[in-house]
Simulated assay, not measured.
Amino acid sequence: MARIASCACGNLRATCTGEPRKVSLCHCLACQRRTGSTYGIAAFFGREDVQVDGPSKCYTRQGDSGFAVRHYFCPDCGSTVFWEPLRRPELIAVGVGSFADPSFPAPSQAVYGEYRHPWVAEQS
């Protein structure tokens, strides 16, 4: 099975084969700022299972782990499509919203719950 994630304008795409190794909902403040929402949701795939096509720009930030995280976004529309958590170099994280697929697997975990907005339901 292959799924295609893309930016809003379609110029940056990530084709992911197989099922994600993990889907995680993150309430951290960095994800809130990155998404403009109250949380971010990432699907983690093995690096070998992701093919990226199209132009991208990279923004690198320091993660809480002490390792950098490289975020790749479309230089035309600005949508972040995927990122590389350097703490786990064998993985690529892809924004679940970039798949625009309501049938995508649900998160199996939620992290940084201490930053969850009180009106956002807890993941069960």
Score class of each variant (00 low, 15 high):
Pro85Asp: 12
Ile41Gln: 07
Ala42Val: 10
Leu91Asp: 14
Ala93Trp: 05
Val69Lys: 14
Ser103Lys: 09
Cys26Phe: 08
Arg70Gly: 04
Ser37Cys: 09
Thr35Glu: 04
Glu48Ile: 03
Gln32Arg: 15
Phe73Trp: 04
Arg88Pro: 00
His27Arg: 08
Ala2Gln: 15
Trp83Met: 14
Tyr59Trp: 15
Ala8Cys: 12
Arg13Lys: 15
Ser56Gln: 05
Phe44Thr: 08
Tyr59Gln: 11
Ile92Pro: 10
Ser103Gly: 02
Asp76Met: 10
Phe104Trp: 05
Phe44Tyr: 15
Ser37Gly: 13
Ser103Arg: 09
Ala8His: 15
Phe73Ser: 07
Leu91Thr: 02
Glu90Trp: 05
Ser124Pro: 15
Cys16Ala: 14
Gly54Met: 00
Pro118Thr: 02
Gly66Phe: 06
Arg87Cys: 12
Pro118Glu: 05
Pro55Gly: 02
Gly36Val: 08
Ala5Cys: 11
Tyr112Phe: 15
Gly78Pro: 11
Thr17Ser: 14
Phe82Arg: 14
Phe82Asp: 04
Gly97Phe: 00
Ser108Glu: 15
His71Gly: 11
Trp83Thr: 06
Gly10His: 05
Leu12Phe: 02
Glu114Met: 08
Glu114Val: 12
Gln32Asn: 04
Gln123Ser: 09
Gln51Asp: 13
Gln32Asp: 03
Leu91Asn: 12
Cys7Arg: 05
Pro105Phe: 00
Ser65Gln: 07
Cys16Glu: 06
Thr80Asp: 06
Cys74Ala: 09
Phe82His: 14
Gly10Asn: 10
Val50Met: 07
Val23His: 02
Phe67Ala: 13
Trp83Cys: 14
Ile4Tyr: 01
Asp49Ser: 12
Val23Ile: 09
Pro107Cys: 01
Arg88Leu: 12
Arg88Ser: 14
Ile4Phe: 10
Asp101Ala: 04
Thr80Ala: 06
Cys58Tyr: 00
Val81Lys: 08
Ser103Cys: 05
Gly36Tyr: 10
Asn11Cys: 01
Tyr59Lys: 12
Glu122Ile: 01
Ala110Lys: 03
